[in-house]
């Protein structure tokens, strides 16, 4: 049966759009397509698309319970997806896992666990320890070098429960550094840390970007988004907006993301800065 001309044009355009999306995904560090996650019957993340270009610092921003952490976990297969695909550097995640590092929320583990700082960092070297899991001097040196990058060398042999919250967060970052990945996904790395730690962490993240790596953070502090990140993904179960901070991090989009829950003072501040 002959197609009508308009349908054919739409079909061709559709294919072109699809091809463009595929090409974009291949160039990106990570591309998420129609990710849906649900614990029970109400989705925590609903059909979210997102593209994290290479060599960028991305913030995922949204209210509590908006599915930010869940999106990160679903992207890594830590929680099962109901639908959606994940592409990492143009290949399926399973073939590029060694290029991705993950920093879970600090509160997600038991800090009374019998393990020392250096042991936690060496967990980042897990893939390289081989079948028998033997630790060599070279592994130890690399773990110490990662600790040095976060300013924690002197704490290498401490039990992890003796660290402050900020120090624990630094240890988690050092473990991710040990993975030597090209894409870093961090879940609330600045939550409950002191100013010195916040600075130490953002310095490392900017260094990573400077090395051509990609960093994605779940972030809750709207005041620092513009200073720390160059792109932002706004979500509240669904994707609200995504793009460069200057274009996307607007009062209008934040209102759409947070609804009435955002302090109006913050919106006013943003409005002012947009005008100025």
């Amino acid at each position: 049966m002959a197609m009508r001309a308009r349908d054919r044009i739409e079909l061709v355009q559709g294919r072109e759009a699809e091809a463009a999306a595929r090409a974009e995904a291949a160039r990106a560090a990570m591309a998420l397509r129609e990710i849906t996650v649900s614990y029970g019957e109400s989705p925590a993340v609903f059909s979210v698309d997102a593209t994290f270009p290479r060599d960028s610092l991305v913030a995922i921003v949204g209210p509590n319970g908006a599915g930010k952490s869940t999106l990160l976990k679903a992207a890594l297969g830590v929680v099962p997806r109901l639908s959606g695909t994940v592409t990492v550097f143009g290949t399926p995640l399973e073939r590029a896992r060694e290029r991705v590092a993950y920093v879970p929320q600090r509160a997600s583990v038991d800090w009374d666990f019998p393990t020392r700082v250096i042991d936690v960092v060496m967990m980042g070297l897990y893939r390289e320890l081989g079948l028998l899991g033997l630790v060599r001097a070279s592994h130890r040196e690399r773990a110490l070098a990662c600790l040095a990058r976060v300013g924690m060398t002197d704490f290498a042999t401490r039990q992890i429960g003796q660290l402050s919250g900020g120090q624990q967060q630094r240890v988690f970052l050092a473990r991710a550094l040990a993975q030597g990945a090209d894409l870093y996904l961090l879940d609330e790395p600045f939550a409950g840390v002191d100013a010195a730690t916040e600075k130490a962490i953002i310095d490392v993240l900017k260094e990573l970007k400077g090395e051509g790596r990609t960093v994605v953070c779940v972030h809750h502090d709207l005041a620092t988004v513009a200073d720390y990140f160059d792109r932002v993904l706004l979500i509240n179960t669904r994707r609200i907006a995504e793009g460069p901070v200057a274009e996307v991090f607007t009062a209008e989009n934040l209102q759409a993301t947070y609804g009435g829950r955002l302090a109006s003072a913050h919106i006013d501040q943003l409005r002012l800065s947009e005008q100025g």
């Binding site: 890594l76 830590v78 967990m123």
Partner: peptide, 17 residues
Amino acid sequence: RPMTLVSFDPGFAAALG
């Protein structure tokens, strides 16, 4: 090693694949 990793931080272990 895998049992230690899963006991301490199952989320990280899953992210490692």
